[in-house]
Computed example of a mutant assay.
Amino acid sequence: MQVKIINKSKHELPEYATAHAAGMDLRANLDEPVSLKPLERKLIPTGLFIELPIGYEAQIRPRSGLALKKGITVLNSPGTIDADYRGEIGVILINLSQEEFIINDGERICQMVVAAHEQVEWMETELLQESARGEGGFGHTGRK
């Protein structure tokens, strides 16, 4: 699949790290380092603008290493970029650690996954088909 991209960042285009990777890392595009204090959140620019085909979205997800080692994650995970959005991709990062974290220009801050999606057409009804699970939720399947 080909996707149009405008790269106004100082960095190379995002790319897959391995042959079977689902996501590609996005980098911070900063003029100066950004400090994230504990429990602070900020919108971090990437300098990237994309035009997705209709029927696709881009999901912005945390990087597992950054989350585990530093407590930095994407606040609205997964963030969604719709096919009709033409603005700069920005990433809302939050620091869930007890220590200040400095984001430097070019730092890999998240991963982006492009995925197909459907739009539903609601069919109002008075009854839903029965299932084995029924109304069980929120831990319903638990340990057996």
Results as ranks from 00 to 15, higher is better:
residue 117 H to Q: 12
residue 119 Q to A: 07
residue 96 L to A: 02
residue 101 F to W: 11
residue 128 L to Q: 08
residue 129 Q to C: 13
residue 94 I to N: 07
residue 125 T to V: 14
residue 126 E to K: 15
residue 101 F to S: 03
residue 102 I to L: 13
residue 85 Y to S: 08
residue 123 M to E: 15
residue 100 E to C: 00
residue 120 V to G: 15
residue 101 F to D: 03
residue 119 Q to M: 11
residue 98 Q to I: 13
residue 116 A to P: 15
residue 92 I to V: 14
residue 125 T to L: 11
residue 95 N to I: 00
residue 117 H to I: 10
residue 100 E to Y: 08
residue 100 E to P: 00
residue 95 N to T: 01
residue 92 I to A: 11
residue 121 E to Y: 06
residue 119 Q to H: 14
residue 93 L to G: 06
residue 94 I to F: 04
residue 108 R to Y: 02
residue 100 E to R: 11
residue 110 C to V: 10
residue 97 S to C: 05
residue 87 G to H: 02
residue 130 E to T: 07
residue 98 Q to G: 00
residue 87 G to E: 03
residue 87 G to A: 06
residue 128 L to G: 02
residue 110 C to Q: 05
residue 124 E to I: 04
residue 127 L to S: 13
residue 96 L to M: 11
residue 98 Q to L: 13
residue 112 M to F: 03
residue 130 E to P: 12
residue 108 R to W: 04
residue 94 I to K: 07
residue 110 C to P: 08
residue 94 I to A: 03
residue 111 Q to Y: 02
residue 90 G to M: 15
residue 109 I to T: 04
residue 96 L to G: 00
residue 111 Q to W: 08
residue 85 Y to D: 07
residue 116 A to Y: 08
residue 106 G to I: 01
residue 105 D to C: 01
residue 113 V to A: 06
residue 121 E to R: 04
residue 85 Y to T: 07
residue 128 L to K: 08
residue 116 A to K: 14
residue 110 C to T: 11
residue 97 S to W: 08
residue 116 A to H: 12
residue 107 E to C: 01
residue 107 E to F: 11
residue 85 Y to C: 05
residue 86 R to Y: 01
residue 90 G to V: 15
residue 104 N to Q: 10
residue 105 D to F: 03
residue 111 Q to L: 08
